[in-house]
Design a protein around this nucleic acid. Structure first.
Lengths: 111, 111
DNA sequence: ATACATAGTATCTAAATAAATACTGTCGGG
DNA sequence: CCCGACAGTATTTATTTAGATACTATGTAT
């Protein structure tokens, strides 16, 4: 992990972690419970396996999630939120409130 | 504005608005006060004028900000948060708290 | 021996995003 | 008549991100 500069603005930092198409929903699902790869994939039918793998690796790199490998066959790998990932749930909660309000405004404009 | 589907998950919706490299910081700055284009650009020296224009247009399309043109010469254009943009400030507040905690964890791992 | 389940990798292509750079229009001041 | 201020546009290029598709490993069950 070769993360760079300190003293970075918290907003810039957050943006870096959240950009992309799937980070928020993945964090939301893992926030509900620890899940295996396959289970998570079933929650998210719109991304392919390789994309999901990449997203998970990125979140792991950034320290938001943890990956626990059980030495079994067939493989078992569990994904869960890290400590800082758990703290992110507060953001998710506000995001959910806001997202719903936003959806309402779209309906009002019926577009 | 041809935004599509309703009944969308609030997380997916939020993600769509936040993806990209600059949305959060721009919203943060406009949350402090209404600003003219040039003033905003001086706050954000890391993006070029054309990139800033595109980001602002995207946020406007998504209904998060408003753009007020004063018919003057030289031109004066003010950007501000819309109603739903103002509501986003609650998310920003949580994001700031989390972002700072996240930066702390990076320091602990000194990377 | 063969098939199945799980969690991947490896490549390649496509799409989306951002950056670089140069150009535009108009009014007032010098 | 030219310059500067402001807020852009236009075009091209580069970078980043995601998607499609095919392939892998291994132990158990049939």
């Amino acid at each position: 992990m070769e993360k760079d500069l300190f003293g970075i603005c918290p907003y810039t930092t957050a943006q870096r972690v959240l950009s992309g198409k799937w980070s928020i929903i993945i964090l939301y699902h893992l926030g509900k419970k620890t899940m295996r790869f396959g289970e998570l994939q079933r929650q998210l039918p719109d991304l392919t396996q390789s994309t999901l793998t990449k997203q998970l690796r990125a979140l792991e790199e950034n320290g938001l999630i943890e990956r626990k490998i059980y030495p079994q066959v067939p493989p078992k790998v569990e994904y869960s939120l890290s400590d800082i990932g758990i703290k992110f749930k507060k953001v998710l909660a506000e995001l959910a409130i806001w997202g719903n309000e936003y959806i309402e405004t779209l309906k009002d404009k019926n577009c």
